[in-house]
Design a protein around this nucleic acid. Sequence first.
DNA 1: TAAAAAATATTACGATTATCATATTTTATA
DNA 2: TATAAAATATGATAATCGTAATATTTTTTA
Lengths: 213, 213
Amino acid sequence: MMWRFKHLSIMIIDIKLGETMKKTKPNHKKEATHERIVLAASKAIRRNGYDGVSVADIMKEAGLTHGGFYAHFPSREAMLVEAASKAGTDVLAVLADSVSSVPPQESLTKLLETYLSPSHINSCETGCVIGALGSETSRQSDDIRHVITQRVKEMVDLVARQTDDWGKPEAHERALSIVATMIGTLTIARAVDDPKLADAIVKASLKSLLENK
Amino acid sequence: MMWRFKHLSIMIIDIKLGETMKKTKPNHKKEATHERIVLAASKAIRRNGYDGVSVADIMKEAGLTHGGFYAHFPSREAMLVEAASKAGTDVLAVLADSVSSVPPQESLTKLLETYLSPSHINSCETGCVIGALGSETSRQSDDIRHVITQRVKEMVDLVARQTDDWGKPEAHERALSIVATMIGTLTIARAVDDPKLADAIVKASLKSLLENK
DNA sequence: TAAAAAATATTACGATTATCATATTTTATA
DNA sequence: TATAAAATATGATAATCGTAATATTTTTTA
């Protein structure tokens, strides 16, 4: 019994080493395809919601047919987790990039104006994943909620770093409420059918956020 | 032109009176059933999303079988509009009621604490419809977006009425950003899987909202 | 209580979807 | 270039869902 377990264990190690080594040379195409699918999915879920896209839709958007999907992911659900995670990462990169182009004392203003710009409000599929999927996330799997939670924390940190008293506990607390206002404003501005109301909410939130330091 | 408008006005009154009178005698049961279905749907969509409930689910929740549905609504979509509208109305009534029980100078605090209470955060299906369905609403039909827009406006008015300078334009502007923060905070608090983070966001938003008058 | 009308239930259809087995094509190795 | 292996495509299955036609039950009227 013992011996058979040991033997099995050695076999598994062999297989794993074999796979790891192979990755350096070939497998190149499969990885690229995998990422293409995740990218397509990260846009699709922000445009249509977690429930609003079929496996076939996403594969078509990635230029593939639906059947090959399960060579890349164990399930639709596993792909959604990767897509949500990537969507969050990409948006944080855009925001971090925008603040890096201005002097430190203007960086919070720049960040808020970028986030609440008409361009961001109107481009759901490449925008903030929490703004696009916020209310749906509470009903998703533990895995999805977990990756979204990570991105929320990263976003709060990014905002805190742009405040005057960065490092103090107040900065973090302040950043939490700023992020809440940013996401709420984006969500409402997209939801309502009255452009004047949408505009008024954006302007009011921007003013309030910039007034209170 | 004038006359035709007056005439039209009278006709509408007539029709309304006729309907109102009929209500007292027959049609009683059907209307009650209709409302029971709408109530079930208003809870179901807040719990599972616009796309997360089938006609059969809702009918079962209302104690009926799915086939009779089309005797009450021309389509699933038409029912969603009624459900979203009712959900918004009901929540506004709860909030208006909560502020009516305290003296005017405490009413904004009371409203915010009610909205951001653990009890509201944990009871999605009876809570704020925009908090529950905010990000999904931008992808819904014009009719749904329109009723949600009405409710947003009503909520902004309700908040504005609790501020010190109610009546001045600043009050309305201030109310817009308060509502954005309220909804963003609720959305994030429900989405994340880390109770400490959820709690920290709620506390930070409450503090910020109450500090700035 | 019998007939008419209204409300609800049963059953079915066509469309969509996640998943998977198998076939074909493309790429890598010898 | 021929063969092995990897990547992708084709086609099928079972489940779910909105809708609707028809049947049954309940309520109202005479």
